[in-house]
Every structure is written in C-alpha cells, then in structure tokens.
Design a binder for these strands. Structure first.
Lengths: 202, 202
DNA sequence: AAATTTAAAAACTATTTTGGTTTTTTAAGT
DNA sequence: ACTTAAAAAACCAAAATAGTTTTTAAATTT
C-alpha cells in the first residue's frame, strides 16, 4: 500500500464519518497524522483528494465484486452473503456522503459518481444474468431495467423515512424490501433458497 | 357539489400542475373564475385552502378505495386494476406537490400529510391482509412493515432519477418495480395471476 | 558528528463562506 | 386598488479555510 493509498483509505473513512463538506484540509492532515504540506504533495487540491477518494472506494468495491465472481460461487450464495453484509454495514453514511458530493461538489459528481453508479449497475446486471443462466431468476427480465432498480431499492432501506418513527429495525426493513424484491425475480428453484434463508433469519 | 368542493377540486388540479408555493391567491382566484373576495369567503387564508385541498384529495382517494373494497372483488383484480391506473396517471406531480408542502408549509405537513400517509398505509395493510386471507400472499409478512414499503416503492418509479437519461419508459419501470415486488409477496396461487398479467402486458 | 534530506509545525495570505443588515420585491389579506 | 407583512435580493463585514511559504525538528547519510 503506497502512501497515497493509505491517505485515501484513511480519508474515505473520515469522510464517511464526518462528511466531506465541513471537513477542513487541516483536519484531514491531522487525521492522517501528517502535515498539510505532505497532503498537498500527494493531491493537488481538495477536489482532487475527494475525487480520488471516491474512485478509490469504488475500486475497492469493484475488486471485492470481481473476487466474488471469480470464485465461481453459486449465484444465490453471492446474493445472500452480500445481502447479509449490506445490512450490517452502515450504508446510510455512504449515501449521505454521496449526497454531499452531489450538492457541494457537482463537478466531481458529474465526472465521477455517475460512472461509479454505472459501474454498480453493470455489476448488478452481470449478477442478474448469472442468476438467470443458473436458473434462479426468471428469463423475461431486462437487466438494463432491473439493475438500476436494484440500486435504488437498496438505497431506500438505508435512506428513507421508512425506519424513522416506526418500531422496525433497519435490517428488518432491508430484508422485507430487498429480499422480497429478489423473491419476485426468482424461479421455483431460486425461491426455495430464499424462503429457506428467510425461515432461518427472522 | 358545493361551491367549496368545486373550488377545491379545481384548485387541487392547479396545485398539481403548478405547485402550491409559487402560485398566488390572485392566480388561484383567476383560475377559479372568481374574485379573491369570494375565495376568502370560503377559506380563511392560503394555509386553510391548501390544508383543505390536501384533505379533499385524500377523501377522493379513500372513497375510491372503499368502493373497491365494498365491491367484494377478488384481491388480485383490485391490485392489478389499481396498478394499471397508477402508472397511467401522473404520480410524480402529486409527489412533488407533497414535497413542496413539506418544505414550505411544514405545519400543514405535520397535521395533514402525515395522517394522509397513515391512511394510505392503513389501506395498503388492509389490502395485504385481504390478499393473505384469500391465499394470494404468503403468510409470514408483517403488514406494518410491508405497507409503508409499498408506499415507498410506488414513489420511486415516479420520482427518482431512474427514468431520467435512460431509454426506459415510466410505465416499464413501474411494472418492473411494483409488479416484481408484489410477485415477491405471492404464493403459488397469486404468482400465476401476476405472471399471466405480465405475459399480456409487455 | 556534521551535513543533508525529509517531513511536521507553524505562520501567512488570498479566497470563500458565513452571519447579520438593509433594501427591494412580492404577494397575502382588506 | 391599497396596505402591510413577509420573502428575496443585495450588500457588507467578519470569520473560516484553502493553499503557500517559512521555520523547526528529526531522521538519515556521509
């Protein structure tokens, strides 16, 4: 891991905790245990830093995805394991980070986040197709429509007012939202596995 | 239909088209073909007008729902017919109207829209339960969780950036989002009907 | 141990952002 | 049409912050 990567790895976490708008370069330098000078030797300015952090976290996600695919695992395993991970981590901080970028760094948003989203949709589409060829999902689905819907659905559980003021947990909501949607995509074969999973996880 | 109801009926449409924030009382009076004086004889102020318009449109929806229920129709018919209507009307204007109320008339939002939403969720929950007792939906579902999720899901199709910049229609998106989610809720019996419907509507 | 390199700390400036004030415009209500 | 209240815009001063430069300290090399 290069110095630059270390900085990005560190700073992404900082951004997720504190947001990127109100965080100052002094604070970032302090958080990384270095002087501003060193920071500026690695990144031309704050925009550059944020942009590269976004790209970096996308790379991490992508490589995790690739290793999942490469492992040639069963589609349903990938799905349910990913699902378990998704509602254990704090998706909402990532989402509000993204929202802040859109609002206060529109250039970065246009250039970077859009393509990150595209990448995400591409992954989803590939997974979907894999599931179809393995016989878990019904055939008459257009991946170009379903994939962005999936991205959107995942966002709601974390983001919306669904959980606020009600007596349901985020993981409960996530399950009923995402798992039920996936159940809607399944064939008999896939449904069995999801129903089994739900039986063991309620 | 009383004068007051006529005004509300008219003004709701106006609000849906133009929003309620920037529309002036002068414009509303003109739109209704009356003087401001007549308007103010029926509503104490703009807040009152907006509040009553919200309640009125909710009443309309509710009575349509009640007549559906009263007709003792098959659950799946209600669902699929309602679904067809939903993606033919312009849900998005209703949603942005609601958003404007939340933003600029928070008092009305707290007092009125919240209970409208509650009413909507109650209807959804009732429909869900009906569907369960009729054997279309799986049993192990908590209506208090599913109902608000359904409301939320319907919003996405109309509202989000899903349809923007992509080559898919809103109705296509709505179908793949809402119908697939419902499909996820179904038993064998309900699934047959949805699959039949999808076969005839693609 | 002196010299050299490296990076942190601190100091500094030039922009940006923010908070508060006044003026102007808009729109409610009579 | 008129009055009044409230919202928006324009404006300014003060604070905060990005980015640069200088100084200090510590590690490394010779």
């Amino acid at each position: 891991m290069t110095v630059k990567e270390k900085i990005m790895d560190n700073t992404v976490n900082f951004f997720l905790k504190e947001g990127c708008r109100k965080v100052t370069m002094d604070e970032i330098a302090a958080y990384n245990g270095m002087s501003k000078r060193t920071l500026y030797e690695n990144f031309t300015d704050k925009n550059d830093l944020i942009r590269q952090c976004v790209l970096y976290s996308n790379e991490l996600e992508k490589s995790s995805y690739l290793s999942n695919i490469a492992s040639q695992e069963d589609m349903m395993d990938i799905l349910l394991r990913g699902h378990e991970r998704n509602f254990s981590i704090d998706l909402s901080s990532m989402i509000s980070f993204m929202d802040e970028v859109r609002k206060y760094f529109p250039d970065i948003y246009r250039q970077t986040i859009r393509e990150v989203k595209e990448a995400h949709c591409t992954m989803m589409a590939e997974l979907l197709t894999k599931g179809q060829t393995e016989g878990y999902f019904i055939k008459n689905l257009d991946a170009r429509i379903i994939a962005p819907i999936l991205s959107e659905i995942m966002k709601i559980a974390a983001h919306s007012e669904l959980t606020q003021g009600r007596e349901m947990s985020q993981s409960e909501t996530y399950k009923m939202l995402v798992l039920i949607y996936f159940r809607g995509l399944t064939t008999e074969k896939g449904r069995k596995i999801i129903d089994e999973f739900m039986k063991n996880n309620n």
